[in-house]
Computed example of a mutant assay.
Amino acid sequence: MRPISSQKIIEEIRSVEIFKQIDPAIFKLLIEKSHVSAYRDGHALFFSGDECLHLQIIISGGVQLHFASQEGAEVIFSEMQSGDVLGEVEMTLDCRHSFNAVVCGKTRLLEIDRKTFRELAKVPQISSFLIRAVARKLHQTTAFAEGMALYPLETRLARLLLSLGAAHGRSVHGGILIEKAISQSRMGQLINASRPRINAQLQAWKSEQLIGISQHKIVIMNKRSLEIISRRSDAIC
């Protein structure tokens, strides 16, 4: 494993939110004990059942986590971004991956092998970071399971649009433009629904002026109504 020597890459790592407040000595130790790998869009990082070889922290780009059936059906349960972590649960429990991970766009990952992970996990500031990473992933997975088990399509879709609006939205005349283009098929994978059902619900909301569609991108026109449909606790007041 070659040490990270590029000052540009070190600055890129330092710019990630989770590393901004870390003690300089701890950050230096982390850099010395890890390496950076670059991946292209669509690269499969690992599959369910694979051995977990590295702890991976996303520096830039993104990674989709999904379950796949033997028949080939896929459900995306998390879209990870800069600062998110892969492998912390598997490393801690010494178990194999239980889902698939695929790179989205050009992505850089800070990678730490199993032996180094065990050394770094003894450092309080790093162990605290790992605990937060596990808690964040548990929260995301619980929310996903709740939506799949309890809520109808319109609620799951409203939550997805609000989430996309929060992460990729920009205020425009008439509402919030979701700048990230996303196909109806991809929406279906994210909320476990067929494309025809997604299309029917979007068209219904369009006719009710809850949303608009501009150049294949969605505009949230009535955020309050979507919040009520989403059944989010902070929307009921």
Score class of each variant (00 low, 15 high):
I10D: 01
I10H: 01
E11A: 14
I13G: 05
S15R: 12
F19P: 04
K20W: 11
F27L: 03
K28W: 08
L30K: 01
I31Y: 02
E32T: 14
E32Q: 12
V36E: 08
L45P: 10
G49H: 08
E51Y: 14
L53F: 09
L55P: 06
I57E: 01
I58Y: 04
I59K: 05
V63C: 02
Q64Y: 04
E74D: 04
E74H: 09
V75T: 12
M80Q: 02
G83R: 00
L86Q: 01
G87N: 05
E88H: 01
E90T: 05
M91D: 00
L93N: 10
S98M: 09
N100S: 10
A101K: 03
G105Y: 10
R108N: 10
T116L: 09
P124K: 04
S127L: 00
A133P: 01
V134R: 02
L138D: 12
Q140M: 13
Q140R: 11
A143E: 14
A145I: 13
A149C: 13
A149Q: 03
L150T: 08
L150F: 12
L157A: 02
L161N: 09
L162A: 03
S163T: 05
H168V: 10
I178W: 03
I178V: 11
S183A: 14
Q184R: 15
S185R: 13
S185H: 12
R186K: 14
R195P: 08
A204C: 10
E208K: 13
G212E: 02
I218E: 02
V219F: 05
M221W: 06
N222H: 05
S225K: 09
E227C: 04
S230T: 03
S233T: 15
D234M: 08
C237A: 14
